[in-house]
């Protein structure tokens, strides 16, 4: 049992981890072909796993409807939404356009799916305002720095900011857009790079932990 649950999966992880690592330093066509093959395997596994996900989704919502759990009415929309796309797709043979005409599938995509996506994305604007309001409450020195930097960036993006700047601080010889660009290009990039270096080192170490079998939690216990 240990062989099947632990040793064979670990051997697969080690071999494929090392081969993938080595292929970074080997530009030979065989190395490229290996990476392509692994990528294809991944796609095949993903396709089958999607069926598993779909089954899980239907099972969860079916169980909720069956036991009349809280908000079970929303679960009905999972099936309604599924049918609203799958039935037109079958009728339209998977095509969104038939010549110059829109098929039922194309109609459902344009007027249901895309509209809902655009709505969700548009909601982001309101969330940005509410989160900005929360973060601009000055409670500490760091919050003060954040507020000042954000204020400069906000004012730098609108004409009135430049007008105000030239009237009040024009004598300094610097422009608001110049200051805004400096904040974006220097301290902001420096901070980002610091985070990125930490992430890169962390990713290397995490990969080594997995490839060399130090971290085996994903394999479960013996």
């Amino acid at each position: 049992m240990k062989l099947i649950k632990k040793q064979i999966p670990f051997a697969i992880v080690f071999v494929f981890g090392m081969l993938t690592l080595v292929s970074y330093y080997v530009p030979h066509p065989r190395s490229v072909a290996f990476l392509d093959t692994v990528s294809q395997w991944e796609n095949i596994v993903s396709s089958f796993a999607f069926l598993l996900g779909l089954f899980s989704l239907f099972y969860t919502h079916y169980a909720k409807i069956k036991r009349k759990g809280d908000g079970w009415g929303y679960s009905l929309f999972v099936f309604v939404g599924f049918l609203a796309v799958v039935v037109p797709a079958v009728i339209s043979h998977g095509r969104q356009m038939s010549g110059a005409d829109m098929t039922p599938l194309g109609w459902s995509f344009r007027y249901i799916y895309n509209t809902l996506l655009a709505t969700m994305f548009a909601v982001l604007a309101f969330y940005i305002v509410s989160t900005a309001y929360r973060s601009f409450r000055i409670k500490s020195m760091q919050a003060m720095v954040l507020f000042v930097a954000a204020l400069i960036l906000i004012l730098g993006r609108v004409p009135i900011g430049e007008i105000l700047w030239s009237k009040v601080l024009g004598w300094t010889g610097h422009s608001l857009s110049g200051l805004m660009n400096w904040i974006v290009d220097v301290p902001s990039v420096a901070g980002k790079r610091g985070i990125m270096i930490g992430i890169a080192v962390g990713a290397v170490v995490t990969s080594l932990k997995i490839v060399f079998g130090i971290e085996r939690q994903y394999l479960g216990k013996d």
Binding site: V45, S46, A49, F50, L51, L52, G53, L54, S56, Q217, Y218, G220, K221
Partner: peptide, 17 residues
């Protein structure tokens, strides 16, 4: 809640464990 079915499969094992 999951976005990727493979991640879901792995997480099922992890949580069960």
């Amino acid at each position: 809640p999951h976005y990727d079915p493979i991640v879901m499969t792995v997480c099922k094992e992890v949580v069960k464990q």
